[in-house]
């Protein structure tokens, strides 16, 4: 309205006192509207029951050397691979300088033979192949994402393709020698 020429009959400006009052009212209204917006936005964030969703327990005993299992955690696949000594050796032999997202193999596992990863490609969220023996494992004996051609190595690190980061490692603990709890 300030852009319009004062229309005939509109309230004449009565000076500073009104300006302060109007300003205070406007400020209060703005604060009020801002405060009202938050509950709406917040309601779209994960609800309490979603946040509290059960952690997943996995029994590792049946997973033979060289095999892998996929379990569901928070609606996402988690890759668990029982790595062979050769897998571990090749992952550790890779110099960090060759990595796009440098991380040592040691920093990505709790026990050398058990690699636990969130099976979601860090590019655009597809599930990489490489869990089944018949799957392609990519050029680095790990996983291959068929959507856009990202290759991960035996430590789940990105080696080739558009993905920017290594496959994420979820928080997990060994509850016994052969059991882990994810989350």
């Amino acid at each position: 309205m300030a852009d319009m020429a004062t229309p005939p009959g509109s309230a004449p400006d009565t000076g500073g006192r009104r300006d302060f009052l109007t300003l205070a009212t406007t400020a209060f209204t703005a604060v009020g509207v801002g405060a009202v917006v938050w509950p709406f936005i917040s309601s779209m964030n994960p609800a309490r029951d979603t946040l509290a969703l059960a952690s997943t327990e996995v029994d590792l005993a049946p997973v033979q050397l060289g095999q892998a299992v996929t379990v569901m955690w928070r609606g996402k696949p988690v890759f668990i691979r029982h790595r062979t000594p050769e897998n571990v050796a090749s992952a550790r032999a890779t110099p960090l300088t060759e990595l796009k997202d440098p991380a040592t193999d040691q920093s990505r596992v709790q026990k050398d033979e058990w690699l636990v990863l969130i099976g979601v490609c860090t590019h655009l969220g597809c599930v990489p192949l490489g869990q089944k023996p018949t799957d392609p494992h990519g050029d680095y004996d790990g996983w291959f994402c068929p959507c856009h051609g990202s290759h991960y190595d035996a430590a789940g690190r990105i080696r080739k393709g558009p993905a920017p980061l290594n496959l994420a490692v979820p928080g997990y603990t060994f509850t016994s020698d052969t059991k882990i709890r994810i989350g």
């Binding site: 917040s42 309601s43 779209m44 609800a47 309490r48 029951d49 979603t50």
Partner: peptide, 24 residues
């Protein structure tokens, strides 16, 4: 966004809005 229009879930989904959804 949080309501489920099904006889088996409607009541519970409303109570979930009351209890678990932020500011539900």
């Amino acid at each position: 966004m949080n309501y489920t229009a099904h006889t088996g879930y409607a009541f519970d989904s409303v109570e979930r809005i009351m209890r678990d959804v932020n500011y539900g």
